[in-house]
Amino acid sequence: MLTVTGLTKRFGGFTALNDVSFEVGEGEILGLIGPNGSGKTTAFNCISGALAPTAGSIRFLGKELAGVTPDVVCHRGLARTFQIPRPFRKLSILENVAVAAHYGTDRAGSEASARVRATKILEMVGLPADPAAPTTLLGAGGLKKLELARALATGPRLLLADESLGGLDPAEMATAADMLRRVRGELGVTIVWVEHIMATLTRVVDRVVVLDHGEKIAEGRPLDVAADPRVIEAYLGEPIVLT
């Protein structure tokens, strides 16, 4: 459903992504992993329209996405979360999600129906749907949930989840991993999950793509990839050779 071909992004002389290609199938949960600075978030921003790629193509549901603005990307059925949650603080929890439900799709219904959908999604992720509850009630875990709820409210076919578990304790991480599985199971949403904690990810994803220094170094089933010497090297650093 998503085909990335030869994706390249340069910032001046720095190449953040170099000729990266991968595919995401319908109903799949794909893990996109790599150490810090490997280009995960850049890839993510190119796909979601926040950055225009230098070269390469991104095809989603048969249409080109490269260079399309973020709001259009969202209308085409591709939603994203942010690595650091970016709630709208002046809006209540419900309004945060309702505004996404209302403007996230092309076929906008009534404002009341957007609120109903927002309430359902808040229930699903386990947040209060009280229209007056402010976002200041939420801690780190709650804000991650709100971030997810807001993205899901736009009715996506594919969700790009950016390091959605960073900053959570192990118990919260396990709950969040279950949540992503439920998102796929109940809403039928395909997921690309960007994460650098490999252990949590391997239990949920079907397949992983590993980036390092802007290049794809491995792709496959989680356990195979975890055993790949190049991946181990990327994560643990190159062996020190004494001369």
Binding site: R86, A98, G104, A153
Partner: peptide
């Protein structure tokens, strides 16, 4: 009272996040 107010508040706070949920900034 309109949903447009929520959209404008969202834009006023964070244009990038607002665009990511489909709001035409």
């Amino acid at each position: 009272r309109s949903m447009a107010r929520s959209a404008m508040e969202a834009i006023g706070e964070d244009e990038t996040a607002a665009a990511s949920v489909g709001i035409h900034v």
